[in-house]
């Protein structure tokens, strides 16, 4: 006990700060890659939110005589597009829709998918088999194909694109949720809770959720980049947002005709998609390793 006494005389405040999430935060801050990725994302998000203040021009106002100006042109920092609109402005505004269509489907799929997965995993038995095999039917389609098919069936439009992307992601997230829950369910502490007479809802709330949401959350973060790329793809095909709305995927589509005239300008929306999605991926990698604690 002498050994225990030495390291236990901690003030109350210090002890309260030793919670799990505080630990995760501290470890994340020590990871330079994750911090950089988080800063990039923060920058893009802030720029998108504050677009009217930050952007140098009007995103819809074009000029027929100043079309397809190169990067670092006197009037246009990042050039102009095929209708003579300022590229920098359109990229900043485009972040609004692109981020929205990247994040919202993942958030809704996270809520629905983890509910399905946790329920199936906790109940187990034939209920689990029934639910998960149904999920597998969706899982069997390649996600791009499923997203296009659903969007096509629902009709073009931002809302329909979001709905179809949500449907695409639900099976992926339920799979992960079910796998993690099945693992946790057989742990001795869940059995101890059952033995102490707790009902299934209490056990899920107190003992399952806290241990399951972390891994699902990390996985969902990695889906944001997929969602952004798919959303851009849908817009590119004309199934998402419509012109003249600035959106990275759509801009990539409309500028493709200019690829021989101004290749660098035409590649800019693609670069934005690339930077944002890789930042989300790196952040989720950092989160994953920060959350791997000796439990």
């Amino acid at each position: 006990m002498a050994l225990a006494a030495a390291d236990t005389a901690l003030p109350e405040s210090r002890r309260m700060g030793r919670g799990y999430w505080a630990d995760v935060g501290r470890r994340l801050m020590r990871d330079p890659v994750a911090v950089t990725a988080a800063c990039v994302i923060l920058l893009i998000v802030l720029a998108a939110i504050l677009a009217p203040l930050v952007a140098p021009a009007d995103p819809y106002k074009g000029s027929m005589i100043r079309r397809l100006k190169p990067i670092l042109d006197a009037n246009y920092l990042l050039g102009s597009d095929e209708l003579g609109r300022d590229m920098l402005t359109r990229l900043i505004y485009g972040g609004r829709l692109s981020l929205f269509m990247g994040v919202l489907p993942v958030v809704s799929a996270f809520l629905i998918g983890s509910s399905i997965g946790i329920f199936a995993g906790y109940v187990g038995g034939w209920v689990n088999t029934l639910i998960m095999r149904t999920i597998d039917v969706f899982y069997a389609f390649p996600s791009v194909l499923l997203a296009i098919a659903l969007s096509g069936a629902l009709g073009a439009g931002i809302l329909n694109a979001i709905v179809s992307l949500t449907i695409v992601f639900i099976p992926l997230i339920s799979r992960v949720a079910e796998a993690v829950t099945t693992q946790i369910r057989t742990r001795d502490y869940v059995e101890a809770a059952r033995v102490s007479g707790a009902g299934p809802l209490t056990i899920i709330r107190v003992h399952v959720l806290g241990n399951v949401l972390g891994p699902i959350f990390v996985y969902a973060t990695s889906l944001i980049s997929v969602s952004m790329i798919l959303a851009s793809g849908l817009s590119f095909l004309g199934l998402g947002s419509k012109p003249p709305e600035p959106e990275w995927g759509l801009m990539l589509n409309t500028l493709r005709t200019a690829i021989y005239v101004q290749p660098l300008v035409a590649a800019l929306p693609g670069a934005m998609i690339f930077i944002t999605s890789i930042s989300f991926n790196l952040l989720s990698d950092g989160l994953r390793s920060a959350m791997e604690v000796k439990q």
């Binding site: 799990y20 502490y189 809770a193 033995v195 009902g199 107190v206 806290g210």
Partner: peptide, 30 residues
């Protein structure tokens, strides 16, 4: 309520996300 069990694996039988006092208080709270 009258029969309780102590498990072999002291590590697996405690919820890593609950403090010690919350773990002990869980049964009575239920």
């Amino acid at each position: 309520r009258q029969v309780q069990m102590v498990f072999q694996d002291s590590h697996a039988s405690l919820n890593p996300r609950l403090t010690v006092e919350d773990t002990v208080a869980f049964g009575p709270r239920v």
